[in-house]
Amino acid sequence: MIKLEKLSRAECIRYLGGKNLSVTPQIESLLNECEQKIFETASVKYLYREIPLDSQILHHGNDIEEHLKDCEKAVIMCATLGAGIDRLIRTSQVTDMAEAVVIDSLASVAIEQVCSKVDLIISDIYPGKYLTFRFSCGYGDYPIDLQGEFLRILDAPRKIGLCTGKSSLLTPTKSVTAVMGISKNPIEKRKRGCAVCNMRENCKFRKAGLHCDI
């Protein structure tokens, strides 16, 4: 069971375009209320599975090959905050759009937090080994339309209700799929690019050609 913990305010504010923002009590209470709603609504679920390196799904383009270079195994994973969060975002758009964007953004922070926790769970299974960062389809030349295949291998629609459709959008929307390499040797610290960031679709930095430096 993964339990959500305090969501990073700084990340949320950054996602929503705040750079030099002074956090007033009003903003603080808006963030707190939205976080509380997310905690009450989210139903965190995840799956992972080791797959052999010669699996078809790992051989689409150069970027994934590069990512898994020197690895001996790969683990694919997926995680979701559940359909309730989508409903919460939908309903809040009707009543208060300002709240809706905060919930939307905090939920992105939350799914990122979930993924980091899944990372830890997986690394516990491979003591003494090293994990690459999460590499998702849609990045570089790794095709986004592998999304369905990821979910099928993980049996995600049935096990955690995570699906996709013709547009390869994950539904529920606050969800992630990714692949990680397992290596005997320490993995050269690469800067985690926008590649595997779940905010990349909405990221102001990326759009401005910058990086958030995480």
């Binding site: 923002l21 903003i27 964007v101």
Partner: peptide, 17 residues
């Protein structure tokens, strides 16, 4: 203010509302 990052999106929306 939003463009300069002094406020963030929810505040712009609140102003609009």
């Amino acid at each position: 203010s939003f463009e300069k990052g002094k406020t963030f999106l929810p505040q712009l929306i609140q102003s609009a509302n």
